[in-house]
Amino acid sequence: MIEVKNLSKIYGDHVAVNDLSFHIEQGKIYGFLGPNGAGKSTTMNMITGYIAPTTGQIVVNGHDVAEEPEEAKKCIGYLPEFPPLYTDMTPYEYLKFVAELKKIPRNQHKKCINAAIEQTKIQDVSNRLIRNLSKGYKQRVGFAQAILGFPEIIILDEPTVGLDPKQIIEMRDLIRSLGKQHTVILSSHIMQEISAVSDEVMIIAHGRMLAQDTPDNLSQHVTGTNTLELLVKAPDYRVRSVLDKISDISKYEVSREEDNGMECTKALLSASMEVDIRESVFYAFAAAKQPIISMKPSNISLEDVFLKVTEGKNTDSRGKRQTGKYAPIRRNKEERD
């Protein structure tokens, strides 16, 4: 569907995108995750043909963006970081203009526009001037523009910026439903955003691809282990003695904890990926007559993955903004707006 090979973009002496290669398959939702300034928007702008790469090649649906830009652009609906709205038009007029611009056959205009308006729930404002709409509505008009005519590939640069929590949930549902028939690429610097909808996550920082996998696999890959969190109603020395007997456990940590007034011990167990230690742990504690109050797989969140991955590799890149530890998860974008 989309084939990106050795893509680089250099602005003066700043490397925005650095030798990026990836492959995007049909019918999946891809999430670009990365801190601000990681090169997400630049990459999207290059895929959509708005800016040209310094080096590298992008092929969309078999059309090279540099050689057959019009054919490639026909397959793509794009919502840029700032929705490109003509504020002196109403959403309906605007969508009609976009329909003509995208060369959607005239007899389908009405159907396509109404479908886009309905999907993004902007019926109520479709006859007001865009200039007078709130940020959330403007964002949705921009979104309607991107999905107009339902192109095969839909690229969304931070689609939920400026929306309220209810709208964010609606937007996620919409993206998920789009993902059933279309290829969707979205970007965000917010983990929940990406993990909620994406089939596959690409973590980008300093213009490089640091990891690409499903959200679940990503969390496992980072630790390379299988971790389990236990709460046992027993003093810690007993817990230790039981755990010492289980051979599959490669590492554990225990700490005292209080649960509803009971003296408990919390244990964090690590084992290799291949073995499931839950059963043996259960029987070992049952045999020692030490009740397990709770047992749950301790999943590393995507956020941890993100921090871990971006922290680990930022020493070798040449970006100017890293300051040792990464703290990119603040919503800088909204502050700017």
Binding site: I76, Y78, P84
Partner: peptide, 14 residues
């Protein structure tokens, strides 16, 4: 300035 060129230049028009 208003970034609407992004719409024009990413649409299938030369």
């Amino acid at each position: 300035r208003t970034k609407t060129d992004q719409l024009l230049f990413t649409s299938p028009v030369s």
